[in-house]
Design a protein around this nucleic acid. Structure first.
Lengths: 241, 241
DNA sequence: CGAACCTTTGAAGTGACTCAATGCGTGTGG
DNA sequence: CCACACGCATTGAGTCACTTCAAAGGTTCG
């Protein structure tokens, strides 16, 4: 996480070491494993080091809505922090390496590291804006736009950690998973994927997806990349030490 | 805001006074006034004291998606704090009284008030979960459920400030506004409202809406009230003086 | 080599949209 | 105090995006 956050703000040595303290003793979990389930009593937070996770929620009828995807460098479990129960189920979409730490460590961080606190707050707001973008997509656009938007959002988040030249990807999500993310059925996702490919906007070979015409995809999906930078101008001073 | 936050955590005198410092010099704006628009350069935050606001975003085709409603006691503009431009347009839905303060004041708060920082973070997470609930509604439920969910969410948020016995409300939102909030058309919202009334779930007299059968509404709308309390157990200590 | 799981394709059905007209309420000016 | 205008709510009829159901084709893994 330190390396992703340093993308947004220069960290002092002390801040880096505080973050690294949260990331000691990583554990690995397998594709399909569930980190925690909606309703679980949990007071832990996680930092993703490798792989993807998805948090989702079930409806009473048995349908699923995926709320967020979590990529390396992000914190998982924070959304549930205002409650003593998990608000969503978090599942590994691929092989995942992550580190767990108790909520109280975050409390300590709020006590000792004002600048990091502000950064965490900002990252939370970034996530909130991302959720708003998805809300806009689900509320006011149709299939093609929703899928274009999802794909671009995934690429944008991966580029923060893998570099800006990324334009091809071995997709670990099944079409069912994409459907759950954008509120469609798997059958229809398949049709829309084919349409995007027919339009030469993307290319599909097996499970890999390549962006062919990013400009037009952005236009169709009404996509704006929010993940490039964060405004840190209002942050408090780093502790002097 | 102090009074809403004290609903979640006992505030020290010092914390109360810090919050009140943010809320001096209130100004009033009229129904329909725009606080700021998507894309504006803004470095201000607002605390709502009276009335409702709605933040929304426009699509290229001219459609609107409402992202959040803001009620008395909540902070407006925080979602844009990670950026130097506003991510949404915020408009007064009724007569509104609010207080503005610069982002740097929030920075100061992160520097001096660890417990309040944690509380702000938690409130942000509460909002995030609320957005997730709306995402779930838009992605995986149909008209009746979406509208039921919206109405219950509004009542839940008003009850935090107005008391739990509230079950009737003069609705300042037009059907067009509700449509923008739940991703439907005004025409269809009208039909669904009528259906809810026909089913004796709500009662409509002019612009006032009364909840008749809250249990069944909650079931239909898959609603869960997130606004009752916040887990503060992991917070750091309040500063000693 | 088979079984389980995905993906792909076809055909029919429906929830929500669009277009269009009518009704209602409220404020404003003559 | 009436009449008109304007914004909003309501209702009807036809259409379309997406769903559902069902079956066939591909992959991957034991």
């Amino acid at each position: 996480m330190a390396s992703r956050l340093s993308h947004y703000m220069d960290l002092t040595e002390q801040e880096t070491s505080v973050l690294e303290e949260l990331e000691k003793s990583p554990t690995e979990i397998n594709k399909g494993d569930i980190l925690f389930s909606e309703g679980d009593e949990t007071s832990e937070l996680f930092i993703v080091q490798k792989g993807w996770l998805a948090s989702s929620t079930m409806l009473m009828v048995g349908e699923r809505q995926t709320l967020q995807l979590h990529f390396p460098g992000s914190m998982v479990g924070s959304a549930s922090i205002a409650f003593n129960r998990a608000m969503a189920t978090v599942e590994a979409v691929s092989e995942v390496r992550l580190c767990r730490f108790p909520r109280t460590s975050l409390g300590d961080l709020f006590g000792d590291q004002p600048r990091l606190s502000a950064l965490f707050y900002s990252v939370a707001m970034l996530e909130q804006v991302d959720l708003c973008d998805r809300l806009k997509a689900l509320g006011r656009t149709q299939g093609k736009a929703r899928l274009a938007n999802l794909l671009l959002s995934i690429f944008a988040q991966l580029r923060v950690i893998q570099g800006d030249d990324l334009n091809e990807l071995k997709m670990p999500l099944r079409q069912t998973d994409m459907a759950d993310a954008i509120g469609l059925t798997p059958v229809y996702v398949n049709r829309v994927l084919s349409e995007l490919a027919d339009d030469r906007l993307i290319e599909r070979v097996g499970k890999t997806i390549r962006i062919l015409d990013e400009d037009r995809l952005e236009q169709i999906g009404e996509f704006e990349n929010r993940f490039k930078e964060i405004d840190t101008s209002w942050f408090p001073e780093a502790p002097s030490t």
